[in-house]
C-alpha cells in the first residue's frame, strides 16, 4: 500500500452513468485485481475502485455514478487532485494461467480483468475474454481487449450486441482456468459450471480498505477473511456461497 496525490487527466463519460477516470501520479507496483481507495471531498470514508489499468505514472479507473461519492467524483475536472491509496488487496495469481485462461466480466466486472489481460499478453499467453452486459448500449472495452490481442466475445442479455444470453453460457471448452469479476449470481454460477480452476474478484462495502476495521469480512473455507486485505481475489475453492448472498 502507498498513499499519493494524483492529478486528474481525464474524467469522461463512456456510456450512461459509467465514466473513466485517468489519473497522473505514481501508483507504485500494481498487481492486476488490486484496487485503489480514493478520498472524496464531502465523504468521510474512502471509496474503493478496481484498477482497470496502470503504468509507471498513471492509474485508470472505470466507475458507475451511483451515489453521493461517485457524483462528487464525476464532477472532478482535469487538473484537480485526489488523495489515493494504491496497491491494495491481493490480486489475481498469474501463475494459474499456464495454458488457456478465459477472463469473464459481468457489467463493470471487466475493469480488473483489463490490467490482467495486459499482463498475461505481455507474457505471451493466449487469452480469451467474455464480456457480459445487459444490452449493447452498455458494452465497453470490447475493442480495447481485442487491441491487446485477446480473443474477445461480447454477450448481452437482450441479444442487442454479440451473442444473446449470459456470459456464463459462453465458457470456452478449451479453457484451462478462469478469472472472473461481476455480480455474485454470475460468479456463483461460474463456480458451479466451470470444470477448471478459477479465481474471482469480490465486491464489498468497505470501511478502511487495508485490513484494519474488519468491515468487509466474508466466510471462506479457511475461516473469516477480509475482502480488502485477504482478497478481493479469492480462489474458487475458497468461497462458501451460502454466506455471501
Amino acid at each position: 500500500m502507498r498513499q499519493g496525490i494524483f492529478t486528474v487527466e481525464e474524467n469522461a463519460p463512456l456510456t450512461g452513468r459509467v465514466r473513466r477516470l485517468r489519473l497522473r501520479g505514481d501508483p507504485g507496483p500494481v498487481e492486476p485485481g488490486q484496487f485503489a481507495d480514493l478520498r472524496i471531498e464531502g465523504c468521510f470514508l474512502r471509496r474503493p475502485f478496481s484498477v482497470c489499468d496502470a503504468a509507471e505514472n498513471s492509474l485508470t479507473l472505470v466507475y458507475r455514478v451511483l451515489g453521493r461519492g461517485t457524483e462528487t467524483l464525476a464532477a472532478l475536472l482535469p487538473g484537480d487532485e485526489l488523495d489515493v491509496l494504491t496497491g491494495l488487496g491481493r490480486g489475481f495469481d498469474l501463475g494459474l494461467a499456464e495454458e488457456r485462461p478465459v477472463l469473464l466480466g459481468g457489467g463493470l466486472g471487466f475493469t480488473p480483468l483489463f490490467l490482467l489481460a495486459r499482463r498475461l499478453r505481455e507474457r505471451g499467453t493466449q487469452v480469451s475474454v467474455r464480456l457480459g452486459f445487459q444490452s449493447g448500449d452498455q458494452a465497453l472495452y470490447e475493442e480495447a481487449f481485442r487491441a491487446l490481442g485477446c480473443e474477445t466475445l461480447v454477450v448481452t442479455q437482450d441479444g442487442s450486441r454479440g451473442e444473446k444470453g449470459l456470459v456464463t453460457d459462453f465458457l470456452p471448452e478449451e479453457a484451462s482456468c478462469f478469472y472472473a469479476c461481476g455480480p455474485v449470481g454470475m460468479l456463483r454460477t461460474l463456480c458451479e459450471k466451470a470444470p477448471c480452476p478459477g479465481q474471482l474478484s469480490l465486491e464489498a462495502r468497505m470501511g478502511c480498505g487495508f485490513g484494519a476495521c474488519m468491515g468487509c469480512t466474508v466466510q471462506t473455507a479457511a475461516g473469516p477473511r477480509r475482502v480488502c486485505r485477504d482478497g478481493p481475489v479469492f480462489g474458487k475453492e475458497e468461497l462458501l456461497w451460502q454466506t455471501q448472498v
Binding site: C43, F44, G69, R205, C213, G215, T217
Partner: peptide
C-alpha cells in the same frame, strides 16, 4: 467470533457507523 453479517459499515456525516 465471525461477527455480524455484512454490510457492517455505513457512511455518516463526518463519521461512520460500524456493526462489526
Amino acid at each position: 467470533r465471525f461477527g455480524n453479517p455484512t454490510p457492517r459499515i455505513a457512511e455518516a456525516p463526518a463519521g461512520l457507523l460500524n456493526a462489526v
